[in-house]
Amino acid sequence: MSDYFTVFGLPRKLTVDGAALQRRFYELSREHHPDFHQGAAPEQQAETLARSALVNRAYRALRDPLPRVEYLIALEEGREVREGATDKPRAPRELLQEMLEVQEALEEAKAEGMSPAAGERLREERARLEARHAAEADAIVGRAGEWDRLVEGGGDREALLEWFKQRLATRAYLRTVIDDLTEALGEREESDVSHRRH
């Protein structure tokens, strides 16, 4: 099966013209959507359905910068990529120490019955982590151009790929801790568990 970059006729680069991608997505949809193949033979319809599904998934993976990086990593590693996968990547060690402290503060707050003061502290902590979570995304997207230059001019792509992976893992871990805080604060909404937007 073709990879998602190939579906859109794109090189394996991280800088993508969003407007052009959308235009191409609409063109491909007009070509393959089952609506326009209603009269076709069953085998042909099945093929159209599979093709249309591929176009839709490819667009979703490449539309936003961060999922694009995630997809690229999976592709480079030859893995099957799956959105919303629940297996969490391993977090970097220096982060673990720091997060352990947050967890301790959380346990403490719970032990004292989540007083208003403790709640306030946790909210501040959460705001700080949210800011870092956003900063990680900026950092990742910030080095997209570097990757593209490596693709064009050659060079060690492995190191950068590894760095992307680390940052994504850090981000995923921050997200988990933020969610834990939100849950402890009793502010968690039921509906946004398994697949947050990046």
Partner: peptide, 24 residues
């Protein structure tokens, strides 16, 4: 979202909500 049950009664999401259809 569409998912399957995995060990321990946890759901593993295969297709997140608001994914354009058809999809697989």
């Amino acid at each position: 979202s569409l998912g399957i049950e995995t060990l321990g009664g946890i759901v593993s999401v295969l297709i997140p909500r608001n994914t354009t259809i058809p999809t697989l």
